[in-house]
Amino acid sequence: MEQYQFEVCANSVESCLAAQAGGANRVELCAGIPEGGITPSYGDIVIAREVLNNTLLHVIIRPRGGDFLYSPIEQRIMLKDISNAHRLGADGLVFGCLTAKGDIDIPFMEQLMEASQGMPVTFHRAFDVCRNPQEALEQIIELGCSRILTSGQQSTAEQGIPLLKELQQQAAGRITLLAGCGVNENNIARIAAETGIREYHFSARENVKSAMTHHNEAVSMGGTVHIEEYCHPVTTARRVRKTIEVLINKAD
């Protein structure tokens, strides 16, 4: 059987627990999922560390949504967040930064890597908006990152299969490619078969209705941006397990 690894994008401690129950190898703990994931709170990291015993805890370091060109003050925040995550017992970190021209920001990445003190680092989907993915792959390897989270520079990993396959061949075992974005029980086997990638990142979330019985639909906490506020997405052990089993059974 192929050796696969499964990472769940966990938007809460509740999702971390579900990922662990479903058999995930690790979680990427983050807040602000609609923004693509930002640094989780101090409390989230502390409690996630307390409850995870069979699943590795990786923490995203991203001070805001949007692009990956960071100001000096944002860079200071990221360095402090790395220090906190290390002190609180995270098993790994997830970050990435670019220059204004869309290249890997080598000088700042070197600072972040030094601050990580040898912890495994995943270069996240900043990779998917970089100017030259083939060149970036080589630079990220040189920086000492453990893996790259990528959808093959497309909206989903399934759409990015051609580039994912090319990058997997270019990497040649020097770094791990972690295929993510839109990966689920319906497409994970196809992505694996066509790319040769062995690590997968997915959320396996379902919407859970709020227990509140009183609703005021006239008020939105997002102001003019209206989101559903009486339900929230959470990872379920059932979907994690199902996604893993699809690929494991296919390999068998």
Rank of each mutant, 00 (worst) to 15 (best):
M1W: 03
Y4L: 02
E7R: 00
V8F: 08
C9S: 15
V13W: 05
E14D: 09
S15W: 04
L17E: 08
A19G: 13
G23C: 04
A24K: 01
R26Y: 09
R26A: 10
V27I: 12
V27P: 04
A31C: 13
I33T: 13
P34N: 02
P34W: 11
E35H: 08
G36Q: 10
T39I: 07
P40T: 08
D44I: 01
A48Q: 05
E50F: 00
N53D: 05
L56V: 01
L57V: 06
I60R: 06
G65I: 11
D67L: 11
F68K: 10
Y70L: 14
S71G: 14
P72L: 15
I73M: 15
Q75H: 12
I77Y: 15
M78I: 07
K80Q: 15
S83M: 03
N84C: 14
N84I: 14
G89Q: 03
G92Q: 08
G92I: 07
G92E: 09
G92H: 02
V94C: 11
F95I: 12
F95W: 06
G96C: 05
G96L: 07
K101L: 15
I104L: 09
F108W: 02
F108H: 09
F108E: 02
F108G: 07
M109D: 07
Q111R: 15
M113N: 07
Q117P: 04
Q117F: 06
Q117V: 05
Q117L: 13
G118C: 10
M119R: 02
M119C: 01
M119W: 08
V121S: 14
F123H: 11
H124V: 06
A126M: 08
F127L: 13
D128T: 14
C130W: 07
R131C: 11
P133D: 06
P133I: 09
P133Y: 00
E135I: 13
L137M: 12
Q139K: 14
E142K: 06
L143A: 11
C145S: 10
C145V: 04
S146H: 09
R147C: 07
T150P: 12
T150F: 03
S151Y: 08
Q153N: 14
Q154Y: 09
S155R: 12
S155P: 02
T156R: 10
A157K: 02
L163D: 05
K165S: 10
K165P: 02
K165I: 01
L167W: 04
Q168I: 10
R174S: 12
I175G: 05
T176R: 09
T176K: 11
G180Q: 03
G182A: 09
V183K: 02
N187L: 06
R190F: 00
I191D: 05
A192G: 00
A192Q: 13
A193D: 03
A193F: 03
E194C: 05
T195R: 10
I197L: 11
Y200W: 10
H201P: 04
S203N: 08
R205S: 06
E206H: 12
V208P: 01
M212P: 03
T213M: 13
N216Q: 12
E217R: 03
V219L: 15
S220W: 03
S220L: 08
G223L: 07
G223N: 14
I227A: 14
Y230P: 06
C231I: 08
C231Q: 14
C231M: 15
T236A: 04
A237T: 03
R239A: 10
V240A: 04
R241F: 12
K242Y: 01
T243Q: 05
I244P: 01
E245R: 09
V246S: 02
V246P: 01
I248P: 01
I248M: 10
N249E: 09
N249S: 09
